[in-house]
Amino acid sequence: MPHRCDRSPSSPSPALPSRDVLAATLRAAGCVFAEDEADMILAAADGDPCAVEAMAARRAAGLPLELVVGWAEFGGRRIVVEPGVFVPRRRTEFLVEQALALAPDASVVVDLCCGSGAVGAALAAALGGVDLYAADIDPAAVRCARRNVESLGGHVHQGDLFDALPARLRGRVDILAANVPYVPSDEIALLPAEARDHEPRVALDGGTDGLDVLRRVAARAPAWLAPNGRLLIETSPHQTPGALTALTDAGLHAELAVCEDRPARVVIGTRRVGGAG
Results as ranks from 00 to 15, higher is better:
243 A>T: 02
219 A>N: 03
203 A>P: 10
216 R>M: 02
231 L>F: 00
192 P>Q: 12
173 V>K: 06
224 W>F: 01
240 T>P: 06
225 L>N: 01
265 R>E: 14
249 D>Q: 07
187 E>W: 11
258 V>G: 11
179 N>F: 02
194 E>I: 07
171 G>T: 06
205 D>E: 07
234 E>H: 04
243 A>W: 01
234 E>N: 05
262 R>E: 14
262 R>V: 12
215 R>V: 07
206 G>Q: 07
171 G>E: 07
261 D>R: 09
261 D>C: 03
229 G>N: 11
262 R>S: 13
223 A>M: 06
218 A>F: 00
237 P>A: 15
253 H>Q: 11
241 P>K: 08
256 L>K: 09
196 R>A: 12
260 E>P: 09
267 V>M: 12
205 D>G: 05
231 L>C: 07
196 R>Y: 10
254 A>I: 08
249 D>I: 01
265 R>Y: 14
266 V>L: 04
234 E>G: 03
174 D>Y: 04
199 E>I: 15
236 S>I: 01
258 V>R: 13
238 H>Y: 13
263 P>N: 13
193 A>S: 14
190 L>T: 14
209 D>C: 05
245 T>S: 10
252 L>E: 04
189 A>W: 05
264 A>Q: 15
238 H>V: 12
212 D>R: 10
235 T>M: 12
173 V>Q: 07
194 E>K: 09
177 A>E: 04
212 D>C: 08
207 G>I: 00
244 L>H: 02
267 V>W: 08
204 L>I: 15
262 R>P: 14
267 V>I: 14
246 A>Q: 02
259 C>D: 15
215 R>Y: 03
255 E>T: 14
223 A>V: 05
193 A>T: 15
261 D>K: 12
260 E>T: 12
220 R>K: 05
186 D>A: 11
222 P>K: 00
176 L>N: 00
252 L>Q: 03
185 S>L: 08
253 H>S: 15
260 E>Q: 14
238 H>N: 06
196 R>N: 12
183 V>I: 15
232 L>T: 01
253 H>P: 03
202 V>M: 14
203 A>G: 09
193 A>C: 13
